[in-house]
Design a protein around this nucleic acid. Structure first.
Lengths: 191, 191, 191, 191
DNA sequence: GATGAATGAGCCTTCATTCAT
DNA sequence: TATGAATGAAGGCTCATTCAT
């Protein structure tokens, strides 16, 4: 049976290398080297470089969604649900900077253009918590009457920019600042 | 003196190709071909591919800043100045989708990581109009007491995300929607 | 004792794949897959790919020779013996196109260059029926005084070319045409 | 302007290597090495390995056809025309063994299967001298009433087999033997 | 015997850069 | 200045073979 440790190692190393240097600055040889594996071995687990990139994306996406679902708030109010979702989102990515750098890169690449940002945290997907909150808020006249996609950009985009700054060391996102920012996001979309 | 027509042609062609296909999908031969120039000629005007990419960025940055400065508002109120700056920013980039795609790509690449977003529209740069508005607003207790960088993300990031969606055809930014969105941005940062 | 079913299956599958796609377009993995066997298993029965190709050739050669010997004519006359041998040869290969395609390929490859055509149907080999007929015919002044190898080419080569055309669908070898052709071959070598 | 000496050198070296070792035992690096050229240089003149193989074939085909046309006989009689064409064909290929080995290999490869042997010396091509002779002979009831393709195999195939034997040193084709053989070919097809 | 994950040399091709003209 | 043929390191991928289980 296939040795899943090796597959795991390859993904782990790939994540790190891709996140740090970008997809096309990382060669299959580099990955193999850092993963202590022969080049050919990578091709046992992945059909090619593109598929490796793709699967890594899918895996991270799942991890992020799962993490957010675990910390799902007890539906107290739309505002509170929104704030805690945003907070968890930021905190999770602060704790997993590699995930963040990888996802950002993926989405800004030919790979990600088809799925678009809306899959980053759900978008049209009915499973998606954020869309639910937005739709709920619009229906209850709590939020501005804008397309969900616009509400999405108004709230997620600033977090992503700030996360980038934080990870690169241009700013420090502490608890207090995070709270202020998520509340500012709420102010932006609330009616 | 150097034949600036050739240099100009190379930059023009490069902008188009890079914006449409991405930096590493465009070869120097491709550029030379489309610019009706020999490959070697590119190296007369630019030290290499990286420098070409770099200079193209600097040029676009200047164009955008100049364009915004030309439409500078008549300092009526902080809110009005902010709104018209945002509006002009969006409109300019809607009219110049190639500029937008190029800049986005540059910033999301190893090249752009060093200069960061603050150079995209000025940032800490004292020349920068947006920073002035923000600082002014903070001083007059009109805006939330957040780092300028945070105010920046809160307002520019959503526009960039929406611009991307618009250019890719996922959404249509008409005048009415643009107004709603820039006002939402204002709501997010105002005290 | 070795499980000959597996060995048999490997050879059968290899024959089909090699004949249809060519030696270097068929990988060991492909063979293993189609033969429902692990790659490693092939190496239990054959020292390597080259040896597999070699043994397959030897096996087919034997099959063809055996088949021709079974239909050996009742030594009526040199002409009749020759004609029925040629006829049987063609018919057998028309019925076994995979054998033909494999042999042709083998002979036109670095493998076959050493053994040469004379092993394809016997050649100098004293066992060989055709050589006997030729030698007999020369001795009895019935055939032209040419080296046996030349008589061989004069008769076998056209059949092989026509067989190829037939298998590839460029021509249709029916009974009547086969007769005409074998007789033409006889006309070519008879004195 | 492109340096045709380099292109020539590449073709010359490729012909030799391919003829001696087979298409897929010769790597582009090998060719580059023997041709005293960088690998990349080959790709200036040829789109890829397949195209190199293809162009080499076309070139040799032209050379052979030209050579035969130059020695075209003065239309004395069908028999004489046939014999001298066959003779020239053999002699030319004996003088150019590399051409022969290359053509044989090409025709017995996926490349050549589409064009088939009939392009080797003309076939259906109305320009082709041999087809003319055959058609003429059939019309004048001088030759057997067989498909032209069959006459072709009856005459060309033995020559090719014998040429192979000669080049590999299994037989020696001297002037006398060549004459005997081409006459035997004639005997095979004549009525 | 049987398995199939692992190996790594080797293949074809691309492309930024150089340099003689 | 301008040219574009030439370079060769580097990249993604394949596959015959091995070997621990």
């Amino acid at each position: 049976m296939r040795n899943m440790d090796k597959r795991e190692k390859i993904m782990e190393v790939s994540l790190k290398l891709f996140a740090e240097h970008g997809f096309h600055r990382v060669s299959m040889d580099m990955i193999a080297g850092k993963a202590d594996v022969a080049v050919g071995t990578i091709y046992i687990y992945f059909a090619g470089k593109d598929e490796l990139i793709e699967e890594l994306f899918l895996e991270l996406e799942n991890k992020i969604i799962s993490a957010l679902q675990k910390t799902r708030p007890a539906k107290r109010s739309i505002r509170n649900d929104f704030l805690s979702l945003m907070n968890n989102f930021i905190k999770y990515l602060i704790d997993h900077p590699l995930y963040f750098r990888y996802m950002e890169q993926y989405i800004n690449s030919p790979f990600g253009i088809a799925l678009r940002r809306d899959k980053f945290l759900g978008g049209q997907d009915k499973q998606d918590m954020l869309s639910h909150i937005f739709q709920d808020g619009i229906d209850k006249k709590l939020l501005k009457d804008l397309p969900v996609g616009a509400l999405f950009s108004l709230t997620i985009a600033p977090l992503i920019f700030l996360l980038r700054d934080h990870i690169l060391g241009f700013i420090t996102l502490d608890k207090a600042l995070i709270n202020k920012i998520t509340e500012a996001c709420w102010d932006g979309i609330k009616r």
